[in-house]
Design a protein around this nucleic acid. Structure first.
Lengths: 224, 224
DNA sequence: CCTGAATATGATAAATATGTGAAAAATATC
DNA sequence: GATATTTTTCACATATTTATCATATTCAGG
C-alpha cells in the first residue's frame, strides 16, 4: 500500500471537494461517498481504506449509523465532522468508536494535523511533538513556544501561523496559501489580515522576528 | 509478556467497544467475550490474562458465576461492572474475590485508574497512591488533598479534575479532552461546565490556583 | 532619486472566549 | 421523603483575540 486511502463521506459536494483538495495536497488518495449507504457499500468493497472522514448530518444514514455499520467489521479510524451547534454529540461517538472530532468550519491545517495524528497513532510509533528551528522551539503538546529557551506568549492564531512557517521553513508562501491553510475554509476576509499577524509575530519573536522575510509582491517566507 | 492482556466480558457490544477503546488507548491488549460461558472458555484457553472486567448482568452465566468458576483455578484480579441500581450486590462480590467495583456509567479516567491500581497491586508492591506537584499533594486512596501541608476540601469532581491536571502537568488540555476523560461517557452537557469547576479549583487552591493556566481559544493547562 | 504599488504599523472596531455569581437541576445524605 | 450538597446551566461582565482601516513607510523599476 503506497498511498494512504481516505474515504470522505458527505452529502454536500462542496464539502467533499474541499476535503479532497486539502487531502490530495498532502498526498492522500481520496475516495468519496455522497451518503451513508454509499459509504458503507464503498467501504465494504474497497481494500485498504486507512481512515474515514464522516459528516454527522446526512440523509438516509447519518454519520453515527455509518460508524455503527462499519464498526461491525472493522476498526478503521473514523473522524467525525460536526457543526458547531451539535457539539454535544461528541461523547455519543465513543459508543461507536469515533476516534476524533473536527468541528466545522475547520482549517486545513487542523484537518491534516488530526488525520496525521490518527494515522500515526494507528501505526503505533510514538513521536515527540517538538519542532525546533533556529532557536525557536514549539512544543505542540504543551502549547508552548520558546525563543532561545525563553517562553513567549502567543495567541492561538499566532501559534498556528508560526507553526505553519516553521513547517514550511525556506518555502515562499503566498498570502492566499497561508490563508487557505491556517484560516478556516469559510474565512473570506482580507488577506492583509495576515500582515497584522506577521507584524505581531515578528515583534514577539524579538530579533528572531527577522527570520520571517517579506517577499515583495508575493507573500512571506521563514528563513534563517 | 509485553502487553498486558485484559479480558472484557459484557453482553452489550456497545459497552465492550467502549471499554476496548478506553483500554486500547492506554496500551492494553483487549480480549472480548460476549457472555459468561464464553468468558470462562476464553480464560481457560488464553495465556497470561492479567485482569478481567466483568459485567454483572449477563445471560447464561452472570458475573458472579463467572467469578466463581474462575476463582476455582486462578487468582487473576477481577473488576466488576454494576449498574447503579444493583449497588447492593457489592458485598456479595467479596465472597467471590472480586477486587474492585465500577459503577456504570463511569468515566474513562476512573476505569483506567482502577485498572492500573489493581495491576500495580497485583504486582505486589504495596503503595499508597500519592501524587505531589508543586506543594499540592493528592492522596488518591484516602481522597485527601493538601496544599503546602494544609488539607483542603474538594468535591468529587474537583478532585478528579485536579488529579487529571496533575497527571497531565505541562500538557495543554482542550475542554473536549477534559470532558472525555474526567466526565462519564454519558455526559452530553456544556463544555463551559469545566470553566466553573476550574474557577472553584483555582479559588480552593489559593495562590497555587494560578498554576491552572488558561490557554486562550484552546483550553487549560496545569503548569508550575 | 522619483513614483506608484505593496507592505508595515498603530489605532480601533468587531468578534470570541473566558470569568464569575447566582439559580436551577441533579445527587447524595439523613 | 425532606434536606443538604454537588454539579450544571445560564446570563452578564470582562478580557483577549482577530479583523479592519487609515496612514506611514518601504521597495522595485524607470
Amino acid at each position: 500500500m503506497d498511498v494512504t486511502k481516505i474515504l470522505v463521506v458527505d452529502d454536500e459536494s462542496r464539502m467533499r471537494k474541499l476535503l479532497r483538495d486539502f487531502l490530495v495536497k498532502n498526498n492522500y488518495n481520496v475516495i468519496e461517498a455522497a451518503d451513508g449507504e454509499e459509504a458503507v457499500e464503498i467501504f465494504m468493497n474497497t481494500k485498504d481504506i486507512s481512515l474515514i472522514i464522516l459528516d454527522v448530518m446526512m440523509p438516509k444514514l447519518d454519520g453515527y449509523g455509518v460508524a455503527e455499520e462499519i464498526r461491525k467489521i472493522s476498526k478503521v479510524p473514523i473522524i467525525m465532522l460536526t457543526a458547531k451547534s451539535d457539539e454535544k454529540d461528541e461523547l455519543k461517538g465513543f459508543e461507536y468508536g469515533i476516534d476524533e472530532y473536527i468541528t466545522k468550519p475547520f482549517s486545513p491545517k487542523i484537518l491534516v494535523a488530526r488525520v496525521e495524528a490518527i494515522l500515526r497513532r494507528s501505526n503505533s510509533t510514538e513521536e515527540n511533538e517538538i519542532i525546533e528551528v533556529a532557536g525557536i522551539e514549539m512544543d505542540l503538546v504543551a502549547h508552548i513556544v520558546k525563543v532561545d529557551g525563553n517562553p513567549i506568549e502567543l495567541s492561538y492564531k499566532e501559534f498556528e501561523l508560526l507553526n505553519y512557517f516553521l513547517i514550511n521553513k525556506g518555502v515562499a508562501l503566498s498570502r492566499e496559501k497561508i490563508l487557505n491553510n491556517v484560516w478556516n475554509y469559510d474565512y473570506f476576509g482580507d488577506a492583509r489580515t495576515i500582515d497584522t499577524h506577521v507584524k505581531k509575530l515578528r515583534s514577539k519573536l524579538g530579533n528572531k522576528g527577522d527570520y520571517i522575510k517579506t517577499i515583495w509582491g508575493m507573500g512571506y517566507k521563514f528563513e534563517v
